[in-house]
Amino acid sequence: MAMTNLSLSIIIPSYKSPHLSTVINSLRGIGALEIIVVDSSPEKPDVVDEDVTLVWLQRRTPAGAARNIGAARAKGEYLIFVDSDVVFTERSRSAVIEAVRRKTQSVICGHYIADRENDPFFPLLQNLILDYRMTRKPSSDSDDWWASSHFLMLRNFFEEVGGFNNSIETYEDVEFFSRCRNLGIKFEITHDFEAVHYKNYDFKGFLADYYHKAFNSFQVRRRYPHVFKGSSAKLGPAIVLTWLAGALVPFWAVLSAVVPASLTPAIAGILLLLLACPVALWPVMLKGLPPPGNCAPWRCGRFSACP
């Protein structure tokens, strides 16, 4: 590990990750004080590096709870949380070093790199969606969506917020960042803080992931309305219409079998219209690269000043 003597603790929640060693190796150049892996796999992972602290929980633990366990053991002034399928680049390592050295008071969130030439279709689509939502979708005062795949913050801020909610399995990042927002903590999304996402999706896994997240978002917002007061989960028309069209596909299949045949064309027409809207919107939404410069265009103003 590079000897830059940063007061920084890296925390990796993990469960049966085949990429754990790759993730750890991508973080060594930062020169952090420590790397803490909190793993809840059935079998103990093969992490033998003397500069890596392994906390093996032996039973499945939600990512938020695993991050809390790692943070409780951390010694650094800053904490950086990295998912076990997120690999840093040279640019992201430099971005972390620069943020810690300038004593940032903001939560620094990263984004994924989308490899349009080499990524399979569904992983590419997922990465483009996340990139759009975090760096290119126009923001308003009610947009409060951030991703916990890799982010950096002061440890005392993390403790002030109270860490992640241990009882939430999915959508825990949005709930956590909403509490940060409620305390007035500022956010930055820096384009240099990039990472490669190793999670692979097929069509079934892609749909299941979104249905699962959508269901949990409603559950969490209903359970903790005070946390989300004044915030909104604005997704943009392409994402909303895509979800709506996808949700209606199985209902159309059932209705076409039970309703009178005279109504089937009307139902099919509505479904096709909903499907056609996202098809027209996605190319417009996803084309092109993130805007030039080191920060998202809407970062100036509400959250913090651009460098």
Rank of each mutant, 00 (worst) to 15 (best):
Q219K: 09
V196L: 08
V220H: 07
L128Y: 03
S40Q: 09
H197Q: 13
E188V: 04
E175P: 00
L281Q: 07
L207P: 01
R60P: 03
A280N: 03
E159L: 12
M1I: 03
K199N: 10
H191I: 09
G205C: 09
R67H: 14
S21D: 09
Y112M: 12
V55S: 14
G31A: 03
H191L: 14
A280L: 15
S232M: 09
F215P: 00
F215N: 01
F151N: 05
F228M: 11
F81R: 07
F88E: 04
G236L: 00
G293Y: 06
A72P: 02
R101H: 03
R73C: 07
L275V: 05
I80W: 00
E98M: 08
P297F: 10
S178T: 07
N294T: 07
P297W: 11
R67E: 11
S17E: 06
P13F: 11
R221V: 09
N156Y: 08
L57W: 10
K199C: 08
T53N: 11
T242V: 03
F157V: 11
D49C: 05
G64M: 07
A238D: 08
N127M: 09
G76F: 02
V220S: 05
P297C: 10
A208I: 04
S142Y: 14
H212W: 05
Q126N: 15
R91K: 15
G163L: 15
A296F: 04
W56H: 15
A65K: 14
T4L: 15
D85F: 08
V47D: 00
W252T: 01
D144A: 05
F193Y: 13
D115Y: 06
N25G: 07
A147F: 12
F157D: 13
I270R: 02
F88R: 07
I10R: 04
R59F: 07
R181A: 13
A305S: 12
F251I: 03
V284Y: 01
P307T: 00
V87T: 10
K204V: 13
N5C: 15
T242L: 11
A233D: 08
K16A: 15
P42K: 09
M153D: 00
Y15K: 10
I80M: 13
E117Q: 15
V107H: 02
N165C: 14
I270A: 10
P120F: 10
E159Y: 02
D119R: 14
F215R: 03
I24D: 02
G184A: 04
V38C: 14
E117W: 09
V82K: 02
Q105T: 08
V161E: 14
L263I: 03
A238F: 13
A305E: 13
S148W: 07
L8H: 05
